[in-house]
Amino acid sequence: MVRIACAQMAMSANMEENYQKSLDYVRRAATAGAGIICFPEGQLSQYIAQYAGLSGDDFAISRTHPYIQGFCQACREHHIVGVFSLALREKDRHIYSDMLVIDETGQLVTTAAKNHIVRAPHFYEQDYFTPGNDGFLVAPTRAGRIGLIVCFDRHYPESFRSLALQGADVIITAVANETSEPRDVFQWEMRIPAFQNSLYTVMINRTGREGMMDFCGESLVAGPDGSVVALAGTGEELLLADLDFAKAAALRQEKQYLSLRRPGICALP
């Protein structure tokens, strides 16, 4: 049994404040007995992509930034696996919307970039982010095999199936969902793949008002039977849930949704 903590945060315009709040959530999660803590998309800054064509200099950091070193130290100190969501500027000067997994020893295990970048009202992400090309990645940790999906990528069912076939125990999706979006549909986007792949799925959202956007919170943990294991409210919250990976593995064997697949009959490009 592994306890997961979801840090449903409101972000200020001050990156240092968001960093310190993130560290506080790590401490609170460890005190609550969690083995994993996860954060919403772009946890260090307000959501700049709601505006078209601004500079990315104020919200993207490098891999060598002291904040990442601080997250590594916090995970090591509190003996917890951290799933952080950051905008990283790489050596090629491109910015990626990344999820980073840092294990309980403070080592960076995996970095996964958002693969599909949207451009729509309130979501002008193509003005800022470069799509990743590494596909969907699973981070092996002592707290389980963690599959990673960044926000918009969850709209593609192949993302969940790919991670399930790689042996993920839990799939964590960092998002930035606002109140005007179809919140019931977003729940089903977690619950249906949890059911279809007989594993746990997690959606961790922002909350609060930022510019033109109201983020709705309502972070979710779905069980391998498609049930809602835990659901947050609309404000700031540390959502906790216990994940029974052995029970999920038994259900996968019983349901056989994965083992009976016949990929050769699917006419997919």
Score class of each variant (00 low, 15 high):
L165H: 08
L258C: 09
E189M: 15
F215W: 07
F39N: 03
M99E: 12
V229F: 05
E237C: 13
V229L: 14
D103L: 13
C6K: 00
I102W: 07
T207I: 09
E210W: 02
L199P: 07
Q46N: 07
I146H: 07
Q73V: 07
V229H: 05
L137I: 11
I192Y: 08
T110Y: 06
G226A: 04
L231W: 01
I171R: 03
Y124L: 06
A194W: 14
L251Q: 10
S162M: 12
S85M: 13
T111L: 13
Y47G: 05
V175Q: 09
R76H: 14
G233W: 08
C6E: 06
D24L: 12
H116Q: 10
K255M: 15
F195M: 09
S219C: 05
M15N: 02
L165V: 02
V202P: 04
A246K: 11
A60C: 10
G132H: 03
P66E: 08
C216Q: 02
K255E: 15
N115W: 01
Y67H: 04
L148M: 13
T110C: 15
E237Q: 14
C266G: 05
I265M: 07
A60V: 02
P131A: 09
D103C: 12
I146D: 11
A143V: 13
V170N: 07
A168Y: 04
T141V: 12
V26S: 00
Q107E: 14
A164T: 03
A32C: 06
A30M: 06
M190C: 14
H79G: 09
A10T: 03
Q107M: 11
G223F: 06
D214N: 08
E16T: 00
D58L: 08
R76Y: 11
C216G: 09
A29I: 02
A174P: 00
Y51E: 07
L108M: 14
A176R: 05
E236L: 03
T207R: 00
Y96P: 02
R209P: 06
S259A: 15
S198Y: 04
A248I: 10
I117C: 09
G53F: 02
V185E: 14
K91T: 14
E17T: 07
S180Y: 05
R161T: 10
F71G: 02
S85P: 09
N18S: 08
L239H: 06
N177P: 00
Q196N: 11
L240G: 01
T234G: 14
C38K: 01
R142P: 14
A249G: 01
M203V: 15
S259D: 13
A120V: 01
R28G: 01
N115L: 15
S97G: 14
A120S: 12
Q43N: 06
D153I: 02
Q8I: 03
L231D: 01
G35F: 05
F129E: 02
Y19C: 02
N205R: 11
Y156Q: 13
A232N: 01
P121R: 05
C38G: 03
L137F: 05
I4N: 05
G70C: 01
G217E: 06
Y128P: 10
G144Y: 07
D98G: 00
Y67C: 00
D92P: 13
V228Y: 03
L88I: 15
I48W: 01
T201E: 04
E210P: 03
I172Q: 10
I149W: 10
V202K: 01
A139Q: 04
M213D: 11
A49Y: 03
D244Q: 01
R262G: 00
Y200E: 11
I172T: 07
I146S: 11
R183S: 10
E236D: 12
E254H: 10
